[in-house]
């Protein structure tokens, strides 16, 4: 593999990692804090993508579309959280998983009803290319990577510097501790849920120009996203970052070698990780429940 090829593959892999990270970090956080597996996040991912598609094609502004997507998804997520999750939090992981799968399916049905089955293309907002190490690469991919880095830093600062962030971290260790701090746990749950939904929507919108937007897009990425969360370890942000980077590169290199390998590689990695650590790379064995 030549240097230009190598550079191109690495960048493609990093862009994939960026999207995987946005999609899975929230899942991991909300598992850590609320002990839920929220499969409806993949609905917010799709909604984010579809809103981006609608606004981009109607108003011609991608970034406005992204914003619309995030707002629409958060509104939807707020409704779902208030009406369903309030009753789910106490009931355990299985319960949330099955119920949220129901929500996801309803959403997919609705999307099919509104937009039909045909995949829709979304225009790339930035068409320029840059040359790097003898190859030309679309600027958009670098923007995606940059955005993920900014989000990661922002998230770290939020969790480490703000009071709410500290409460979230304390809650991940032990929910009772947050209660001890005199903070309403459910307000924090709602906040994290919305944060997750917002990130999912953002991931969807950002991903849209790179793929086609179609009703099943949420289901197509579900397995990869969860393999990343599992490999990193449920509840660990650090683990999510590491495994997003790992899987992004593995898939990018897989594609250049033999396409089917790219799809199967994360699965093989997951199995290997299971052999060594059933709780993922950074998952805590002591996480209760």
């Amino acid at each position: 593999m030549s240097v230009p090829e190598l550079a191109g593959t690495v960048v493609i892999g990093l862009a994939m990692s960026a999207i995987f990270f946005m999609l899975s970090v929230g899942l991991s956080l909300s598992y850590g804090l609320m002990r839920i597996v929220s499969l409806d996040q993949f609905l917010y991912y799709s909604v984010g993508a579809y809103m981006t598609y609608v606004v981009t094609s109607q108003a011609g502004n991608f970034w406005l579309g992204l914003l619309t997507g995030v707002i629409a998804s958060c509104t939807l997520a707020l409704t779902v959280e208030k009406s369903l999750y309030r009753r789910i939090y106490e009931k355990g992981v299985m319960f949330s998983m099955i119920t949220s799968y129901g929500v996801l399916l309803v959403g997919i049905g609705a999307i099919k009803y509104i937009w039909g089955l045909v995949p829709r293309p979304v225009m790339t907002p930035i068409v320029g290319h840059v040359s790097l190490l003898g190859t030309t690469l679309p600027v958009y991919r670098f923007v995606v990577i940059g955005l993920a880095v900014v989000l990661y830093i922002g998230l770290r600062l939020f969790l480490e510097r703000t009071i709410v962030g500290k409460a979230i971290r304390a809650g991940i260790e032990d929910v009772d501790k947050t209660e001890g701090l005199g903070i309403d746990v459910y307000r924090i749950f709602t906040l994290v849920f919305l944060l997750t939904a917002g990130l999912s929507a953002l991931a969807g919108g950002i991903h849209a120009p790179l793929i086609m937007v179609d009703p099943h897009m949420g289901l197509k990425i579900i397995a990869t996203a969860f393999m990343i969360v599992i490999i990193g370890g449920l509840g660990s942000i650090k683990g999510t970052v590491v495994s997003s980077l790992l899987i992004g590169q593995v898939m990018a290199f897989g594609f250049t070698i033999w396409a089917p390998a790219a799809e199967m590689a994360p699965f093989v990695i997951m199995l290997l990780v299971f052999l060594i650590r059933p709780t993922g790379l950074y998952g805590s064995q002591y996480l209760r429940r």
Partner: peptide, 21 residues
């Protein structure tokens, strides 16, 4: 060997991969 959440998700992934294969 996996705890319940991991088990469910790993099976989901298995199904997706099986389909692809």
């Amino acid at each position: 060997r996996l705890s319940s959440s991991y088990f469910t998700l790993a099976n989901l992934a298995l199904c997706a991969i099986g389909f692809f294969v």
